Each structure stands twice: as C-alpha cells, then as structure tokens.
Computed example of a mutant assay.
Amino acid sequence: MSAAAMDYEQAGELKIGQVGIANLRIRSLDVARLVDEMRQRVQRAPKLFARAAVVIDFGGLSQVPDATTARALIDGLVEAGVLPVALAYGTPETERLSEALGLPLLAKFRAQYERADGTPAPAVEPAPAQASPASARPAAPAAAAVPGSGQPGKIQSAPVRSGQQVYADNRDLTVLSPVGAGAEVIADGSVHIYGPLRGRALAGAQGNEQARIFCREFHAELVAIAGHYRVLEDIPSDLRGKAVQVWLEDQQLKIAALD
C-alpha cells in the first residue's frame, strides 16, 4: 500500500512542502494516535523527519480544540521527534488558539516563497542552459503544463549539492546534472532529472496534481507531487537506480520504471 493510501486512513494527513516544512492536517483529534503516527514516520525515515518543522492544521476538524488538548498534542509531537512551529490559519478560533499557545499563524503554506507584499520571490538564476541530447530523455507520457504559465521551463545545468535548493516558480524544472543527498529540487510544474537523484524532488508545489517527476537514476530521499509524498524507505528496492516516473493517481503517489 502506498504512503498516500495509508495517510488517507490515518488520523493526521502529512503533506510535504518546501524547505523541509511539513503540514500536518488533523483529521481525527486523537492525541495518542497522532503522536504514534508521527513517531512511526520518524522511525521509518529519521534523517528526513527527525527534528523536522511541522505546521499544525486544524482545518480538517469541525471544531478547533481547546488550548489544553492542543498543548498536549504539541508536547506529544515534540516527544515523537518533530518540532511544531506554527498553526495553519483557518478561522478566528484558530487565531485565538495560536495566541493561547504562543505559536505563530501561517496564512500560506508557501509563505517563504513570497515577499512581504505577497508577490513571488525571484528564483535563483540557473547556470547557462545546455541542450539535453535526445538519447538522454527517458520515454514517458508528456506531463501537463503548469496552468496559466507562460514561462519557459527552468534549466539547471550545475550539480545541486547537499543543502542547496533549486525552485522553478510557475513552470517546469529540468536538471541536467546530479541532485545530491540533502539537496532539493522543486517546481510548480513537472521535474525532469537527467542525472542521479539522491536528494528530494517535489513537483506540483502549488497543488498541480497533473505534474510528474521523471528521473534517469532514482535514489531519492523523498519524492512528492502536490504534497503527496513517499520516502526512500517506502519505495520498492527494485526501482532504486532505475529510470522512473512519478505521478499522482486517485490521490495516491505512483512510481514506475520507464521502459
């Protein structure tokens, strides 16, 4: 069963956003169950989730919890190994709860990609583009373009090293070189990687569920489309090192080898 399918049945749905921030949308206010789920996630992928920043989203509940229950959840999540850093804005009740807890509100999950005036932050300029030889392109179905995008895709020719991040806002991203462990490549459209992927790849960052990830040599720490993710520990070993494509189907993340 895929990680996305399991999350659908769990008390809290975890979606992966930018720069290691995760959004934990609470679906069932069962503190012990939520804490146990997060503890298991940390145990399965400690390098990814240990000490990870988490935004708590109570938008999946009919009623915002009281401060005592919310504080018990926060303390439990800290004990499980993650760090709740904010509440996701939803209602005036959420705002009052954030004040009682002493936590900030995040009105937008993608806030760090925006300036204070709300306009998109400029993407890091890539190295000069290089043409990708036709023989290097894995055969795969064409990915849907980013809705409303008039921009050409962004091309990254230099290696993406540990700790670095490359982001293509409102367009596709093509990486012609390796993505190292601890590095992130993110696009609002699809992500194409012609070197080894050892870090993280996130496509459809603004919620485009038609986006895909194509990779020539797959060793990813994490892949995600529109927030639905899988980590290396959840990926079949027979796909590692292969050319693969990743897509979203019926809210489940699919990974398959390319012919």
Rank of each mutant, 00 (worst) to 15 (best):
residue 98 S to M: 12
residue 100 A to N: 12
residue 100 A to W: 13
residue 101 L to R: 05
residue 101 L to W: 11
residue 102 G to K: 07
residue 103 L to P: 00
residue 106 L to H: 14
residue 107 A to W: 15
residue 107 A to Q: 15
residue 107 A to C: 14
residue 108 K to C: 11
residue 108 K to Q: 12
residue 108 K to W: 13
residue 109 F to K: 00
residue 111 A to W: 13
residue 113 Y to T: 11
residue 113 Y to V: 10
residue 117 D to F: 09
residue 119 T to E: 06
residue 121 A to I: 08
residue 123 A to I: 08
residue 124 V to Q: 05
residue 125 E to P: 06
residue 125 E to N: 06
residue 125 E to S: 07
residue 126 P to M: 00
residue 126 P to L: 00
residue 127 A to K: 07
residue 128 P to T: 07
residue 128 P to N: 02
residue 128 P to R: 01
residue 128 P to A: 05
residue 128 P to L: 07
residue 129 A to E: 14
residue 129 A to T: 15
residue 130 Q to V: 12
residue 130 Q to M: 09
residue 132 S to C: 14
residue 133 P to K: 13
residue 135 S to N: 06
residue 136 A to W: 14
residue 137 R to H: 10
residue 137 R to Q: 09
residue 139 A to C: 05
residue 140 A to S: 07
residue 141 P to M: 10
residue 143 A to F: 06
residue 146 V to G: 00
residue 147 P to W: 10
residue 147 P to H: 08
residue 148 G to H: 05
residue 149 S to C: 07
residue 149 S to P: 03
residue 153 G to Q: 11
residue 154 K to N: 05
residue 158 A to G: 01
residue 159 P to W: 02
residue 159 P to I: 03
residue 160 V to H: 07
residue 160 V to T: 12
residue 162 S to P: 03
residue 163 G to S: 04
residue 163 G to V: 09
residue 164 Q to P: 05
residue 165 Q to I: 14
residue 166 V to D: 00
residue 169 D to Y: 12
residue 170 N to M: 15
residue 170 N to P: 07
residue 171 R to N: 00
residue 172 D to Y: 04
residue 174 T to I: 11
residue 175 V to F: 01
residue 177 S to C: 12
residue 177 S to E: 12
residue 178 P to Y: 06
residue 178 P to W: 08
residue 180 G to M: 09
residue 181 A to G: 10
residue 182 G to A: 10
residue 183 A to L: 09
residue 184 E to T: 11
residue 185 V to W: 01
residue 187 A to E: 00
residue 189 G to W: 02
residue 189 G to Q: 07
residue 191 V to K: 02
residue 192 H to M: 15
residue 192 H to Q: 12
residue 193 I to Q: 01
residue 193 I to Y: 04
residue 194 Y to M: 07
residue 194 Y to F: 13
residue 195 G to R: 04
residue 196 P to Q: 04
residue 196 P to R: 05
residue 199 G to L: 04
residue 199 G to V: 10
residue 199 G to F: 05
residue 199 G to C: 08
residue 199 G to E: 03
residue 200 R to P: 01
residue 201 A to I: 03
residue 201 A to V: 03
residue 201 A to G: 06
residue 202 L to A: 08
residue 203 A to Q: 05
residue 205 A to E: 04
residue 206 Q to C: 10
residue 207 G to V: 15
residue 209 E to P: 00
residue 209 E to A: 11
residue 210 Q to C: 02
residue 210 Q to P: 00
residue 210 Q to A: 15
residue 211 A to Q: 00
residue 211 A to T: 01
residue 212 R to Q: 14
residue 213 I to N: 00
